[in-house]
């Protein structure tokens, strides 16, 4: 477990780094500013190793979505900018590229909130995911692959996607990202607003995609236990910084994470992770 304080975070000890074999994606101390004035990420570093699932956790407004958009290049569609640090993917810099080029290189972001082309059918939505690829030939085969992962979508292929249920829509957006054959998929809160049973199902498929397609995943989640359940490594963000990271199983057992994410202290009030951290520091001092 590596503790971090603010921007002067130490380098990860080699054995604990998520990039044990090969680093797919690497954020080096990036700073993100919206509209030239709103500083949202204050030096975030994280890594995703080849074939790994990395969970990115944190409370509302911590900057998780912003971090994903910085990677996918969509930041610039919202007047955001990476003002410091660098983003590396497969050894090359990403932070100067537009979102379309980044998709072509193999990173696809699944946006928060099940964003579909609501008037298009399920299958048309899926096909849009393959439009960026040069060879259109394998689209049929890829559709079959998606239907194998999400059998329910096969029967819904001709339906207007805007009228699908929330769970089905989430399957469509993940399937659509899969159609691009990404090396890294950035998933933003796939559990948002879904019933626990569906969340369970979707997380299982995510794990399966990771194993069978060798897709690396950076998974943003509020439901920490579910995300850490399938992840190899995890980061916790607060107010634009990474405040804690470590192997998923260690994080899962971490009392602070439990306390923070279960959300309630004995007094019944929500705690900020910062307070937990202070408490923990004090404990360590005293202990």
């Amino acid at each position: 477990m590596t503790w971090r304080q603010g921007e002067s975070s130490p380098c990860l000890p080699f054995s604990l780094s998520p990039c044990r074999l090969k680093c797919m994606l690497k954020l080096n101390n990036i700073e993100v500013v919206y509209s030239d004035v709103i500083l949202v990420l204050r030096g975030v570093s994280l890594e995703v190793g080849d074939g790994q699932i990395v969970a990115l956790l944190g409370a509302n407004g911590a900057g998780k979505t912003t971090a994903l958009k910085a990677i996918s290049g969509l930041l610039r569609t919202e007047l955001g900018q990476v003002t410091r640090g660098s983003i590396e993917f497969d050894g090359a810099r990403l932070d100067r590229l537009g979102p379309e080029d980044i998709v072509e290189r193999g990173i696809v972001q699944v946006l928060e909130g099940r964003r579909l082309f609501a008037h298009l059918t399920t299958e048309e939505n899926l096909i849009t995911g393959a439009l960026s690829r040069r060879n259109g030939a394998s689209v049929k085969r890829d559709l079959e692959m998606v239907y194998d992962y999400f059998p329910r979508l096969r029967d819904l292929r001709g339906r207007v996607s805007g009228y699908l249920s929330g769970g089905e829509q989430q399957m469509v957006v993940i399937g659509r990202a899969l159609m691009a054959h990404p090396k890294v998929m950035l998933l933003d809160e796939p559990s948002l607003g879904l019933a626990p049973l569906i969340v369970e199902e979707i997380f299982q498929v995510i794990k399966k995609i990771n194993q069978q397609e060798k897709t690396s995943l950076l998974l943003v989640e509020q439901i920490a236990q579910a995300a850490l359940g399938i992840a190899d490594y995890g980061y916790v963000m607060e107010s634009g910084r990474v405040v804690l990271d470590g192997p998923a199983d260690k994080l899962r057992d971490n009392e602070d994470i439990k306390e923070f994410y279960l959300g309630l202290t004995q007094l019944g009030e929500r705690k900020s992770y910062r307070e937990v951290k202070h408490y923990k520091r004090r404990k360590r001092w005293l202990g």
């Binding site: 379309e100 696809v108 972001q109 008037h119 096909i127 849009t128 439009l131």
Partner: peptide
Amino acid sequence: LAMRAAAEDHQLAQSVGLR
């Protein structure tokens, strides 16, 4: 299809790699 997709949501279209 690309035109119909872009007509619905520019940002989403960019996120799937459409120019």
